[in-house]
């Protein structure tokens, strides 16, 4: 009976010991993925910003500019791309909606971002776009990969439609979470006008005829929780100018927007709480369960060896009621 128990314990020991690396290096890379049906919104604000009044073509100080960013996973589109890409793909349809202090629309920029659900590497397929313009992303956008590393990443800038490095600048603590701080500076770059402009009758084509061009620079800052790869906080020091042409009435340049954009407080709290939950799930697969199973496996192995050793100890294996040897007489 004891021998049987020892064998069962040995089988369980091998089971748990094997489960440990299998979970970490086989199951985790296959199970950890961004769900294709994710929906999330984010509100950012630039208080005391400068905004161009397209009616007078004068820049003015405003109390607040609000940016609402929505990302919506398109499950049907992701299945379609998966058929040709041969891997798990996420298609995010996004909208950056900018609203002035009077509640009127300043701009609306839609985009479609297609990426690998596991690694977050961009996937190139028809439909990848920013504001209707086909683009090719060569870097990440919005989210870092699971188990983010302390290194620079390539990050796609939707305004410039270009990819450039976003630099790892150190590890910090953000509201109780260890985060990696990344920063990207986009120098003054000529960028297209949004397709939807805040004044009726003015289109990007009609502006182009005046010779006026749109320029932009930004310092983009992200605080990324490295286990999930999710940014828990973001800021942008963003400036836009219109330059040259007849639209500016002889002026060389005019500020279209200037502001320090920050996440709204309630959204920071919500994001931190969500990331803390998701972090626990990822850690379960990468750390808690593998180490727990390995420890359990070792414990069971020791126990099974102990039972086996006890079983083989001289005197213990002999039957308790063995008959006394008969005296031998000469």
């Amino acid at each position: 009976m004891r021998r049987k128990a020892g064998l069962v314990l040995l089988a369980l020991a091998v089971f748990f010991a094997a489960l440990s690396p299998l979970l970490r290096w086989y199951a985790f890379p296959r199970l950890a993925k961004v769900p294709p049906n994710q929906y999330q919104d984010m509100v950012l604000e630039a208080k005391g910003a400068t905004l161009l009044d397209y009616g007078t073509m004068q820049a003015r100080k405003v109390s607040k500019v609000t940016i609402v960013q929505t990302l919506k996973g398109n499950v049907e589109a992701s299945k379609k791309v998966e058929r040709t890409a041969g891997r798990d793909v996420v298609v995010w349809d996004g909208l950056s909606y900018v609203q002035g202090p009077d509640g009127k629309t300043v701009s609306e920029i839609p985009e479609r971002y297609i990426f690998d659900a596991h690694s977050q590497e961009p996937v190139h397929a028809t439909g990848e776009m920013v504001d209707g313009d086909p683009v090719r992303r060569d870097g990440i956008e919005f989210k870092w990969p699971f188990l983010t590393e302390k290194r620079d990443y390539e990050y796609f800038d939707a305004q410039a439609r270009a990819t450039s490095p976003i630099r790892y600048q150190g590890t910090q603590n953000f509201r109780g979470l260890t985060v990696y701080y990344f920063e990207q500076t986009v120098p003054w770059t000529k960028v297209p006008f949004p397709k939807s402009l805040p004044v009726e009758g003015i289109t990007p084509e009609s502006v182009a005829k005046t010779g006026t061009t749109r320029w932009y620079t930004t310092v983009r800052k992200f605080w990324v929780e490295p286990v999930t790869g999710a940014p828990v906080y973001g800021e942008e020091i963003h400036k836009e100018e219109l330059r040259g042409g007849t639209l500016l009435g002889g002026r060389d340049r005019v500020t279209a927007f200037a502001g320090h954009v920050k996440m709204r407080e309630d959204y920071i709290e919500h994001t931190v709480s969500l990331v803390k939950q998701n972090r626990t799930v990822v850690l379960l697969l990468t750390s808690y369960l593998p180490w727990g199973f390995l420890s359990l496996g070792i414990l069971l192995l020791v126990l099974s060896l102990y039972l086996e050793a006890r079983d083989r100890r001289p005197g213990r294996s002999a039957p308790a009621n063995a008959a006394e040897p008969e005296p031998v007489s000469a």
């Binding site: 919104d41 509100v43 609000t66 609402v68 919506k72 992701s78 349809d93 609306e108």
Partner: peptide
């Protein structure tokens, strides 16, 4: 993991 369905919620053009 199940893929689920595309959310019926719209892309926002109002401030939540």
């Amino acid at each position: 993991l199940p893929d689920g369905r595309t959310s019926p919620k719209p892309l926002l053009t109002t401030v939540p």
